[in-house]
Amino acid sequence: MSKAFQSGWLRQRKHEAVKHVSFSIGKGETLGLIGESGCGKSTLSRLMVKLLPFDQGKLFFEDTDITKYTMKQLFPLRTKMQIIFQHPDSALHPRQTILQSLVEPLLLHQITDRKQAIERVMDLLAPVGLNEEILSRYPHQVSGGQIQRVVIARALTLSPRFIVLDEPTSMLDVSVQAQVIDVLKTIQKQFDLTYLFISHDLDLVAHVSDRIAVMCKGEIVELDQSKKVLNEPVHPYSQKLVNAFRGYQTNR
């Protein structure tokens, strides 16, 4: 079974942030999405989890057409697809402890009672590399890398199958970046997750993704196996991108 997303003729506001985009992501796959700032990567990611309404096109989740789903219909599906954002400093409710933020999704969806929710959260701390100590703290007392781990754990509480990672590590130190990427890779295997990994860092995308989609001015200009995009980019923009990243090594 494959998980297929199809969307085309997408439009946001009057300027077309995303247009004529069509692609699918296979189960268990990591699709890397790369492009310059303002090319519509983030808009696309929000369209895919239906945080933004789109004008035209279709969206499938596990063979179900969810294009016309209302917020109410979407509610049970929210557990299956999650999104993780870029900014760790504003990712969590500033006045809730980490524990409150972590149990919130389970209580909101009435999956478990409070006691079971806490147990489930405890089970998820190890895979994301956190310990219990952090649970009683507030977000401003916790480092950016830890926040991203908390956010990942929070998404995992609902046992999702698909996670959009919108530049999850771009605001972190390089050393912490590597750790968070490791966590993401480990849990992908452990929980059988499908990723859409958005970034403007080609090295990073190439490292985590099976396939890479290159986005430019709202369109996907190239979509192929990671190695192929990296070694023999076809579209002029991808070539520019790859050359720019290679620039450090070859041009000097």
């Binding site: 945080l51 979407l74 929210r78 557990t79 999650q82 954002f85 504003s90 999704p105 909101l108 956010v151």
Partner: peptide, 13 residues
Amino acid sequence: ESYIEGIRAIGGN
């Protein structure tokens, strides 16, 4: 703030 989008994505109405 991203926590608003976050809770929306989790399913908060």
